[in-house]
Design a binder for these strands. Structure first.
Lengths: 120, 120
DNA sequence: TGAACATATGAATATATACTCATATATGAA
DNA sequence: TTCATATATGAGTATATATTCATATGTTCA
């Protein structure tokens, strides 16, 4: 006794089972897609975008960035922590001062791809 | 009477005024950076990443996507609305069924740039 | 017309997160 | 050691948003 081609799942009827099966096989690992989303989430905040863009121009200390963006030192420091965690920025210490810089040569390329979409 | 090179702004002392001024001049418009962040924010959710990836393989209807991702039709529909708004997906209607597909050839390139970072 | 189905959407809820505020840590100078 | 400064960070708050639930809209078919 064969079940009909239309199977109940979720709250709707599958209409194109072949397509669903084909795409399911080609989809990357759940974890990979999650990591990808997490990375883009970091780019999805204008403060962090500004920090990354600034650092693509020059190495800067926390105070410099806060001044540039007219934000508090604390707010910038919190965001830098996030950027460090995903290894988009690195830092070096010189006395009291901590200098941040980009840790990924591809940041600009990610920006560029985004701009291509925006400017179309 | 000349003010010292160190000027109080925000809650900290400017340490490298030349750098700040230089970077300030080179920064894109506030609005451009905001739009860029808004675009990446759309990529910053694993459900939407999965939808985009799926659509990069094949045109699919809402029900197909819901089945593929094991989520409700409503949740998918809400996310498709967001993807439509930023013109990452387009749709065509055929009777009751609405078929979605990618509306930007660069989606895959944006993915690829993100993966380059993750896989390093 | 009415029933069935595919999709869309408004409201509510639960969760994530950006910033503030207060304070801790670390370094250099007096 | 004591003070000043640069940065980091924990807690709290306000806001954004992903999903659910109920329901509306629109289309096909009997």
């Amino acid at each position: 006794m064969v079940i009909k081609n239309e199977i109940e799942r979720c709250d709707c009827t599958v209409i194109h089972e072949e397509v669903v099966d084909m795409v399911k096989q080609k989809m990357p690992d759940e974890e990979k897609l999650y990591d990808l989303a997490e990375l883009f989430k970091v780019f999805g905040d204008s403060t962090r975008i500004k920090i990354l863009w600034a650092l693509s121009e020059s190495e800067m200390c926390v105070c410099d960035i806060a001044t540039l963006l007219n934000m508090t030192q604390s707010a910038i420091s919190h965001q830098l922590r996030i950027l460090k965690q995903v290894r988009l920025v690195k830092f070096r210490k010189d006395g009291k001062v901590v200098y941040y810089s980009l840790d990924d040569a591809h940041v600009k390329q990610i920006f560029d791809q985004g701009l291509v979409h925006i400017n179309e």
